[in-house]
Amino acid sequence: MASVLIALGGNVGDVRQTFRKAIANICGMAQAELLARSSDYTTPPWGDENQARFINACIEIDTRLDPHALLFTLHKIETKFGRDRGTEKRWGPRTLDLDLIAYDDAVLDKPELTLPHPRLFERAFVLVPLAEIAPDRVIAGRTAAKELANISTAGIERLPDLH
């Protein structure tokens, strides 16, 4: 089994319900066990700032799927929830974004998949929820908790738990 970190994001529709359903799909389709789920956070948009705020979270799963099969599965789930990677605007609005952050200690640099995620340590909207569930996990020689101390978390707010 591989320990995998996945970041979730979205700003179109009922994102928190989409997360709930998407996580169930990830566990089912990736034959995975959910080990941890962060709180949901509302975050300022990244890249194209002229759009609605995002909701972001992170999960940790155990899966037997290899990294490429898992990425394929994550893209299939995004499509199921209305995302069209082929026509969307880069960093634009989306119903669901699933990013493979880390897969065990794997290091890959392929056109279709880079592990760990190449911009992980630049993005507070990933580091805040990641530090909640895996603060001391070493990724590329660094930890989310330490890297989070080096970037601004302005505008990021933890949302109350859904009941």
Rank of each mutant, 00 (worst) to 15 (best):
K89R: 12
K89C: 13
K89T: 11
R90L: 11
R90K: 11
R90P: 15
W91S: 04
W91Q: 11
W91V: 10
W91E: 07
W91Y: 15
W91M: 06
G92S: 12
G92E: 08
G92V: 13
G92K: 09
G92P: 02
P93K: 14
P93F: 13
P93W: 11
R94L: 04
R94E: 03
T95V: 10
T95F: 14
T95G: 07
L96C: 03
L96P: 06
L96I: 13
D97Y: 13
D97K: 05
D97R: 05
L98E: 03
L98S: 00
L98M: 10
D99P: 01
D99I: 08
L100A: 05
L100P: 01
L100T: 09
L100I: 01
I101T: 00
A102S: 07
A102T: 07
A102I: 08
A102N: 03
Y103C: 02
Y103H: 03
Y103T: 01
Y103N: 04
D104S: 13
D104Q: 10
D104L: 04
D104M: 03
D105L: 15
D105N: 15
A106S: 10
A106L: 11
V107W: 14
L108C: 09
L108V: 14
L108S: 11
D109E: 10
D109Q: 15
K110P: 05
K110H: 13
K110R: 15
K110A: 15
K110Y: 13
P111D: 12
E112P: 00
E112C: 08
E112A: 11
E112Y: 12
E112D: 15
E112R: 13
L113G: 03
L113Y: 03
L113F: 04
L113N: 04
T114L: 10
T114M: 14
T114W: 01
T114K: 14
L115D: 01
L115T: 02
L115S: 00
P116F: 08
P116R: 11
P116T: 06
P116V: 12
H117G: 05
H117E: 15
H117A: 09
P118D: 02
P118E: 15
P118L: 14
R119V: 05
R119M: 11
R119N: 07
L120P: 02
F121M: 09
F121G: 01
F121K: 01
F121Q: 02
E122A: 05
E122W: 03
E122V: 04
E122K: 11
R123T: 06
R123D: 02
R123L: 04
R123M: 01
A124Q: 08
A124E: 00
F125C: 13
F125H: 13
F125A: 02
V126A: 05
V126P: 09
V126N: 08
V126L: 06
L127E: 07
L127P: 00
L127H: 01
L127N: 05
L127Y: 08
V128W: 08
V128C: 08
V128K: 02
V128F: 13
P129N: 05
P129D: 08
P129M: 02
P129G: 00
L130P: 00
L130I: 07
L130A: 07
L130R: 03
A131L: 04
